[in-house]
Nucleic acid binder design. Structure first.
Lengths: 248, 248
DNA sequence: TGACTGTATTGATCTCGATCAATTACAGCG
DNA sequence: CGCTGTAATTGATCGAGATCAATACAGTCA
């Protein structure tokens, strides 16, 4: 299970809305004391675009609450999600001030932003931060490669099951619950966003969700709240091998 | 165009078979002098497996010559390539001694290997190397995301055109030639490997290659040598926008 | 030279997911 | 409460790419 926390795990932070999971001021680590001045928060509502592909981006950020997505679009409108950011994930890239993808809030999102220039200075001066960033980027690369297997070789049903298991796991680990037996959570994505994630159409997503429901692999309350009666049963549908191949 | 060189660009190195494009001894940079003892070379023949998924990997390496691929396999045999390593690309990951994917030589390959332990020490002590590694990993992440768009949303024809353009570009930049007008190169992949790259079957790859040939977008001499009469024409087939969206 | 082997091409057919289209469910709001 | 608009479901049909099968081709070895 990859560690997603950038620098200071498990410390409380007075002005963060949740338990602190990112570089931030107010933490009792002297090397980070001066961050105070470079940090600020931003809120986005579900559906809002955080940055457009090609825009200047004068900050990097850590997701505090909610879910955001990175999406690529072709001229003719075909779209593919290429990144899904959940709480504690990192957004942006040192040494590049132009966003390569659209970043869209899937739910209401709270970002903890850091101005670019001082953040880069911080990296340059602080070996352990850049090493942590390397670790996190390598984890993201692993996730991207798992995702490539999904896009290239899995069936629609396997794709859906994989996505649900990924979200269920992340959600469980956020709540410090095990992802075993009965698991339930709120889907932070529309059917369309799921389709963009999986390289499918929203109709196919809907059909396969219905099929999984019919086969009692999942249960739906409303459109968004999902209960998985038996997590192992869902895993059987993903096409992944039983032991932890999943790196996400 | 991403910089793929790890530390010391464009310096000659007495015992490297080609112009030096990777961390290595013998370079006149004192901080790297001690690498001498941790470095060694390994050759692999086309088709040979460098490491199996799950194997211990006690080295990291830089590709000096040839082409290798990273491939994921599902239990039932479905396979998806998730990385393509060309000369100057980096193989392996600090802080993980188990290979997550099969690494297979597509052509004869020469690796410049570094023993894991001293290499990690080097990173820990040497801020600019870990920063360079971060840069390279971020570039790979970009490439992976471009690849995800290909896998999720492109047609078979677009996939083939994209792959050819990627290889043509890399090959041209290796030979310090522009990728404009007429371009020609040797395909370092079998039809099957191309299929694994693109999430297609080898029959579809073959059919689309024939179609591109029929439409005079490419010309074939033998099965492997390819000439692109007009690079722009090929780019029109990729589905990418005209300006440099491509990051690979 | 011809048999053998692995790689590539081409053909015939089938299938999964896309596409086009109609309905339904539901939240917000006058 | 009944409108209105958005998200989701379901149905009917189509087609790109998969699958199964036969053939071509190039290299290698006896």
């Amino acid at each position: 299970m990859p560690n997603r926390q950038l620098a200071i795990p498990q410390q409380e932070c007075a002005d963060c809305p949740i338990r602190h999971r990112a570089v931030c001021a107010r933490c009792e680590t002297d090397e980070l004391e001066h961050l105070e001045s470079i940090k600020y928060y931003r809120k986005f509502e579900a559906g809002q675009t955080v940055v457009w592909a090609g825009d200047k981006m004068d900050f990097v950020a850590s997701v505090i609450e909610g879910v955001a997505s990175l999406t690529q679009t072709m001229e003719d409108g075909r779209r593919q999600m290429v990144g899904l950011l959940l709480p504690s994930d990192f957004l942006g890239r040192p040494n590049r001030d132009t966003a390569p993808y659209d970043v869209v809030a899937s739910t209401d999102v709270m970002l903890c932003c850091f101005r670019r220039a001082p953040f880069q200075k911080l990296i340059a001066e602080n070996a352990n931060i850049s090493q942590r960033l390397l670790e996190m980027t390598l984890d993201e690369l692993d996730a991207a490669r798992e995702w490539m297997l999904l896009l290239g070789r899995k069936t629609a049903r396997e794709k859906i099951a994989s996505l649900l298991s990924i979200i269920a796991r992340r959600d469980a680990s956020l709540k410090d619950l095990p992802s075993k037996g009965e698991v339930s959570f709120d889907l932070p994505l529309t059917r369309e966003a799921m389709a963009d994630y999986l390289g499918l159409t929203l109709e196919t997503v809907s059909r396969q969700m219905s099929a999984l429901k019919r086969d009692d692999v999942i249960r739906l309350e409303g459109k968004r709240h999902i209960t998985i009666p038996d997590f192992d049963l869902l895993m059987d549908e993903t096409g992944d091998d039983a032991d932890g191949g999943m790196l996400v």
